[in-house]
Design a protein around this nucleic acid. Structure first.
Lengths: 200, 200
DNA sequence: GTCTATATAGCGATAGAC
DNA sequence: GTCTATCGCTATATAGAC
């Protein structure tokens, strides 16, 4: 009985290829500009086959988001093994996500598309992982605020949303397209504006 | 010969109504989710009539952007009559734009839609006004950096893009939808994160 | 310039053979 | 599960009467 297992592996591999492709396209062109035909073409299968794996375009986006949440959670758990100040953990995490964005590995969905938001909100897997990540970050944030590493006057949720937003800031792409800074340099600048602000 | 002038005024008023409507819809739903049918319906004219005024959906977006650039330039010129430190001028301007965003008066276009970006780039009026605004801001930025009011280690263009991005930050809408802070409070928080950073 | 009605096209999703 | 072919809808844009 080797064949079924083998086939399952093939399927899994194919789905991973699909998710990787969606990831890149979402990062490059965004949700609205990405077409399902395009995804199928780049993966190298027919569109109907794609729909056997994922029931809708929104499901494709959800799978991509779940994938990045998994990677982010993995990075966070690695950070936890190293002993650092909470603000430094946050700093490292945001820097890592910024680099992912610059390398086209970080999809970002439009905040304004309500239909998509509903689909994501109804997705258990996605919501669970988003919650889990938010709790890790929330703990770091409140700890950092108690230790006066981060501004304690800001509500923790404001800090949380700000970190999420800065990690996929459009300024990253703009500076990258300008072409005069390395990815590391861009991350450096934006980490400065995020944590230190523009003020001297 | 009163009639032609009168009619022209009617036309102008209608176009202003169109632009105002596009402004609001772009702010609420974004470019991709906004439909031309919707614009026509809300203005109260037929879609074909709309196309007599503006040749395309992209032209509608361009008109909306030009309108907000005009308003921003007006605000900037007003600021110039008051004597303030450059960093304070920037602070006031960003705060004003943030408030406009929260009140649904500030359209923001997707940075990823390349066709739209080309159309805007080819639009003289838009580009001229964008340049003019950028020059005012650029002067304030370099002055503020020389006076050590803003971080001089950041390239001025990084500061410029950051200010543009923070002025229509998605975090604004997220916090507004949360519903637990007033618009003024939200602006206050985000101005803090922008200029002072998250660090204490 | 305004309208109704329609052309045109792109895209998400599906049918049905293999 | 994979394919080809197609449906069905939506949205931009236009034709043509008034």
């Amino acid at each position: 009985m080797k064949r079924p297992s083998f086939r399952q592996q093939m399927l899994l591999a194919r789905e991973q290829a699909i998710v990787a492709c969606v990831n890149r396209l979402l990062s490059e062109k965004g949700y609205d500009q990405m077409t399902v035909d395009e995804v199928a073409a780049e993966v190298g299968i027919a569109k109907a086959s794609l729909y056997k794996h994922f029931p809708s375009k929104e499901a494709l986006a959800a799978a991509a988001m779940i994938h990045v949440l998994d990677r982010a959670l993995g990075y966070v758990k690695n950070l936890l093994t190293e002993k650092r100040k909470p603000s430094e953990q946050l700093h490292k995490l945001v820097g890592w996500v910024m680099l992912q964005s610059l390398e086209g590995e970080m999809p970002s969905l439009p905040a304004q598309n309500s239909a998509l938001r509903e689909t994501l909100g109804a997705n258990r897997d996605y919501m669970d992982k988003l919650m889990e990540l938010s709790e890790y970050l929330g703990n770091w944030i409140t700890s950092a605020q108690k230790a006066k590493e981060l501004n304690p006057k800001l509500p923790p949720e404001v800090v949380l949303y700000t970190l999420f937003a800065r990690a996929c800031d459009p300024v990253l792409q703009v500076l990258k397209m300008g072409g005069q800074y390395s990815n590391e340099q861009i991350c450096d600048y934006l980490l400065t504006t995020c944590f230190e602000g523009l003020r001297y």
